[in-house]
């Protein structure tokens, strides 16, 4: 009977040789021209930037001022620090600030996170509105914003705590769930 040829060791050696050949080739190509597309690296960084966004009819939707803005080509996202978003809905502009924000889908969605503070100034006969939460998603084109997080809101002389904030800038509506509100009168101001 013909001596049995040791096939397995030969296969193993071949595999090892192939792998090391591929590894050497890969390392050499990486060294000559590194490919950032495979890594989450910014391809554009701007300090102290200010962006304005308009809708199809030329109406200004928002102005976004940022301390530092970094754009990432691999997922087309933009990461900013210290954003100040001023949204021009009704009845008054709404200004929101936070520690950081991510802008997705070419500005169609802005997710603000960390110390999110919203402020809508008082109008002719509308009291000022303010809110504080930990994160907020803004959809500028729909003129809407929402969060699932806990929210502390002030509206005129009312203090309202609750969950799940929804802001509809188009119709000037703000709603909140699981609500506990206190409405002070002028004489009780010092009590707050």
């Amino acid at each position: 009977m013909k001596p049995h040829l040791p096939v397995f060791p030969i296969l193993l050696a071949g595999l090892l040789a192939g792998t090391s050949f591929w590894l050497e080739h890969y390392v050499r190509t990486q060294a000559s021209h590194p490919d950032g597309r495979l890594r989450h690296d910014p391809d554009m960084i701007a300090q102290g930037a200010s962006q304005e966004r308009f809708d199809a009819n030329g109406k200004r939707l928002y102005v976004l001022k940022t301390e530092k803005l970094s754009h990432y080509p691999d997922d087309q996202s933009t990461h900013v620090t210290k954003p100040q978003l001023m949204h021009f809905g009704k009845p008054q502009p709404l200004t929101v600030t936070s520690d950081t924000a991510r802008i997705l889908g070419e500005g169609r969605e802005i997710v603000l996170t960390g110390n999110v503070l919203g402020r809508r100034e008082a109008g002719a006969d509308q009291p000022a509105l303010g809110f504080a939460t930990s994160s907020l998603t803004v959809l500028p084109d729909d003129e809407r914003a929402f969060t699932e997080e806990a929210v502390h809101m002030t509206h005129g002389r009312s203090i309202i705590d609750g969950q799940r904030l929804e802001i509809d800038q188009l119709h000037g509506l703000v709603s909140l769930h699981q609500v506990r509100a206190t409405v002070y009168s002028k004489s009780q101001d010092q009590a707050r």
Binding site: K90, S175, L176, V179, A181
Partner: peptide, 19 residues
């Protein structure tokens, strides 16, 4: 005394100036 209100939901309607 201040007025306290609890509810499942509140919507602040600035157009009609009500909560």
């Amino acid at each position: 005394k201040p007025v306290k209100i609890t509810a499942d939901r509140v919507s602040v309607d600035d157009k009609n100036k009500v909560q």
